[in-house]
Design a protein around this nucleic acid. Structure first.
Lengths: 187, 187
DNA sequence: CGAGCAATCTTGACAGTGTCAAGTTTGCGT
DNA sequence: ACGCAAACTTGACACTGTCAAGATTGCTCG
């Protein structure tokens, strides 16, 4: 090939991120390689380094993107009048639909946890979650209970441990959540 | 040094496993390296290969050990008359005390998931868990609910997301579990 | 409009990794 | 006591992340 591609890629950063997300979704975060990503995107082996500094830097960017994406969705369902259970279902849906992001976000050993961008996004998502449980009796315990449940459900589902043939995960999670947390009082 | 250590290590397999568990506890599963482990144990760079075939083979052994250990503990608390909630607390305690094992067990992309040993240990632990929920109304839903909760709690706690100053994790989990699942009926 | 500067990307190198094949040393059963 | 198989070593290869230095480009400011 030795293609006639332009020297400047245009949007290499996004291209590398997308390629990385593909790889993570298929092989997990351990499967990402800077040189492999460079190859997939059609760029020299050190191209990605310039945008992310590190391999950990790349994963930091993915984690940050994931946290802001999650915070956005939580804010949306809150704004749409969603109740406590709805918030949890948004969490589950996010973890399944954005599996690659989710698998990085909660593996702090893979990225630069002290990065200001990722820290800000992380606390934003945390606040959105905390706000959702504020209407419950004993909000602190409710937060731990709900977060643990949806996080565990999503994690187990993604690893295949909860696999039921022909079952829609969010529906299963919702029916379980209803029995755990009641029918879901307003707010 | 070029030590006068014997040609045969004695129990290299266990030594490598222990070294790997140390590394995982400190740096996560991504931090393990076959050559690094060999160095720590004081053996040539390809020594460990003979016992585990692969890097994935090493992690397979760790996962298998983890599942049987978990199954053992679940059986014990069941035999000691523990109820539904007690089983969950055993799960949480295991995940925290054997953090390194736990972090490998639920990352199937890291090891040979189809290995017969790990498969057997996995289903054994699964059965122990399933048996615990058999006394509940709607056992299937109860299993999903309880497993999701304890798994999520343990995972979040281990990543530091649930960190509360001076709080004993199992006690926190127990108090939450009691409000979720009732006072814990017998069996 | 065009010159130069900074951002973007390439090339080349180095240390470190997993894995394999081939040798060496040792314990153990017959 | 002998020999065989298990345990370990040595050496090699392809691959990885990271860095330094160079080539190419878009863009800003005169």
């Amino acid at each position: 090939m030795t293609t006639d591609r332009p020297y400047h890629h245009g949007d290499l950063r996004r291209a590398v991120l997308n390629a990385a997300l593909d790889v993570i979704a298929e092989h997990g975060p351990g499967g990402v390689g800077l040189r492999d990503l460079a190859r997939r995107v059609g760029v020299s082996h050190a191209g990605p380094v310039h945008h992310f500094k590190d391999k950990a830097g790349l994963l930091t960017a993915i984690a940050a993107e994931g946290f802001t994406l999650l915070a956005d969705r939580l804010d949306e369902t809150k704004a749409a009048g969603g109740d406590f259970v709805d918030l949890g279902m948004t969490y589950v849906r996010f973890a399944i639909e954005h599996r690659a992001h989710f698998e990085v976000m909660f593996r702090p050993d893979l990225y630069h946890q002290d990065d200001p961008v990722v820290e800000a996004a992380n606390t934003r998502a945390g606040n959105a979650l905390r706000a959702g449980s504020s209407g419950q009796p004993d909000p602190e315990l409710a937060l731990v209970a709900a977060w643990s449940f949806v996080h565990g459900f999503a994690t187990l589902w993604n690893t295949g441990a909860l696999d039921r043939p022909g079952v829609e995960p969010v529906e299963l999670a919702r029916s379980v959540a209803r029995t755990l947390f009641g029918a879901g009082r307003a707010q």
